[in-house]
Amino acid sequence: KSAVKALFDYKAQREDELTFTKSAIIQNVEKQDGGWWRGDYGGKKQLWFPSNYVEEMI
């Protein structure tokens, strides 16, 4: 599983989504079709976030 870095702040709209700030590192990313991926951040595990808010880390 990979890690991504947030390009923008994102505030969860639902309880199954992540809230994060710009430059946050989201771990254990599971990529899905449809523009939403799952990952771990801030003590939350495998919640959804919009993939267009992040960049992949190499």
Rank of each mutant, 00 (worst) to 15 (best):
K1E: 11
A3Q: 14
A24V: 08
A3M: 14
E17N: 02
R14E: 08
Y10M: 00
A12S: 08
A12T: 05
D40I: 00
E17C: 08
D9I: 03
V54G: 03
A24Q: 04
E56H: 08
V54H: 01
F8P: 03
I58C: 14
K5W: 08
I58Y: 14
M57L: 15
T21A: 11
K44R: 10
E17K: 00
G42V: 03
G43V: 07
K1Y: 12
F49N: 02
K5A: 07
W37I: 01
F8V: 10
D16C: 15
S51C: 14
D16Y: 08
L7D: 05
R38C: 06
K31T: 07
D16S: 09
K31Y: 06
S23G: 15
G43A: 10
W37S: 05
E55K: 09
Q13Y: 06
N28M: 06
L18M: 07
S2F: 14
E56W: 07
G35Q: 09
F49L: 03
Q27G: 08
Q27E: 14
I58A: 14
K5R: 15
Q13S: 10
A12F: 00
W37A: 03
L47T: 04
P50Q: 04
Q46E: 05
D33K: 10
A3F: 14
Y41V: 05
A6E: 04
Y10W: 08
E55W: 07
S51E: 08
W48R: 09
M57H: 11
K45R: 11
K22W: 06
Q27R: 13
W37N: 03
W37D: 05
I25D: 02
Q46R: 09
D40Y: 00
K22N: 07
Y53T: 09
K5D: 03
K5L: 12
A12D: 02
S23D: 15
I26Y: 01
D16N: 11
Q13M: 10
Q46A: 10
D40E: 03
R14T: 12
P50H: 05
P50N: 06
L7F: 06
E15V: 11
T21F: 13
K45G: 05
T21L: 13
K22R: 11
P50I: 03
K11R: 12
W48L: 12
E17L: 00
W36V: 03
V54N: 02
W36K: 04
K31F: 09
G35R: 08
K11H: 13
N52L: 10
M57R: 07
V29T: 04
Q46G: 13
Y41L: 09
Y10P: 00
E56L: 09
K11F: 14
I26L: 06
T19I: 00
S23H: 15
S51P: 05
G43C: 10
I58D: 14
Q27K: 12
F8H: 11
K1R: 13
T19E: 10
F49E: 02
K31L: 05
K11L: 14
E17T: 03
D16M: 07
F20T: 02
N28W: 04
K5C: 14
L47N: 08
T19Y: 04
V54K: 02
K44E: 09
M57F: 14
D40T: 00
E30N: 12
A24F: 02
S23Y: 15
K31P: 07
Y10I: 01
L18D: 02
G39A: 00
V54L: 02
D16A: 07
G39S: 01
S51A: 14
Y41S: 05
G42A: 11
I58H: 13
R38Q: 08
Q32V: 15
G34C: 10
Y10Q: 02
F49I: 01
W48M: 09
I26T: 02
G35L: 12
K1N: 13
D9H: 07
A24G: 08
K45N: 09
N28V: 04
D9Q: 06
N52D: 12
S2D: 12
E55H: 09
R38A: 05
A12M: 05
E30S: 13
E55V: 14
Q27T: 15
K44H: 12
W37H: 02
E56Q: 09
T19L: 03
S51F: 07
G43T: 09
Y41K: 01
N52I: 11
V4L: 05
G42I: 04
T19A: 07
D33R: 08
V29M: 00
Q32S: 13
E55L: 08
R38W: 04
G42F: 05
L47F: 11
L18F: 02
G43M: 07
K31D: 02
I26R: 00
Q32D: 08
K11S: 12
K11E: 13
E15C: 13
E56G: 06
V4M: 12
S51T: 07
F49M: 01
L7C: 11
A12Q: 08
E17Q: 12
Q46H: 09
Q13C: 14
A12R: 02
V29H: 01
W48E: 02
G34A: 07
G42P: 00
F20A: 00
P50F: 03
N52T: 11
Y10C: 07
K1S: 14
E55S: 10
R14Q: 10
T19K: 00
A6S: 06
I25H: 05
L47G: 15
G39D: 02
K22T: 10
K44F: 13
T19W: 04
G34K: 07
D33A: 13
V4E: 04
R38F: 04
G39K: 00
Y41H: 09
Y53C: 15
G35K: 09
A6W: 00
N52K: 11
L7N: 06
G42W: 05
E55P: 00
G35S: 09
Q32L: 15
T21Y: 12
K44A: 13
L18K: 06
A24S: 13
G35A: 09
Q27N: 14
A3P: 09
E55I: 13
Q13W: 06
F49R: 01
S23V: 05
Y53Q: 06
D40Q: 01
L47E: 05
G34P: 06
A24K: 04
K5S: 07
S23L: 11
V4N: 04
S51N: 08
S23N: 15
F8G: 07
A12H: 06
Y10A: 01
Y53H: 10
K45T: 15
A3W: 13
R14H: 12
I25M: 06
D33Q: 12
V29P: 00
T21S: 13
E15L: 11
K45I: 15
Q46F: 06
G43S: 10
Q32E: 11
L47Y: 12
E56P: 11
K5P: 00
T21N: 13
L18G: 03
W37M: 06
W36D: 02
R14S: 13
K1H: 12
Y41R: 01
V4I: 06
V29S: 01
K44G: 11
G35M: 10
I26C: 03
F20V: 03
G43L: 07
A12E: 05
R38S: 05
I58E: 14
K44Q: 14
I25Y: 07
W36F: 09
S51D: 04
F8M: 13
Q46Y: 09
E15S: 12
E15N: 11
G43D: 12
K5E: 06
W36Y: 09
K31W: 05
W48K: 10
K22F: 07
K22M: 10
K45L: 14
A3C: 15
D9V: 03
L47V: 04
K45P: 04
K5Y: 11
V4F: 13
T21K: 13
M57Q: 09
V54Y: 00
N52F: 10
E17D: 05
Y10K: 01
F49H: 03
T19P: 04
D9Y: 06
M57A: 09
A3Y: 13
L7P: 01
S2G: 12
K11W: 12
N28T: 01
D33W: 09
E30C: 15
G39H: 00
A12C: 05
W36A: 03
I58K: 13
Q27H: 15
F8W: 10
V29Q: 02
W36M: 09
E30I: 15
N52S: 15
K22C: 09
R38V: 08
Y10R: 03
K11Q: 14
E55G: 07
E17I: 01
W36E: 02
L7T: 07
W37L: 04
W48F: 10
L18Y: 03
D9K: 04
D40P: 01
L47C: 15
L47W: 05
K5F: 10
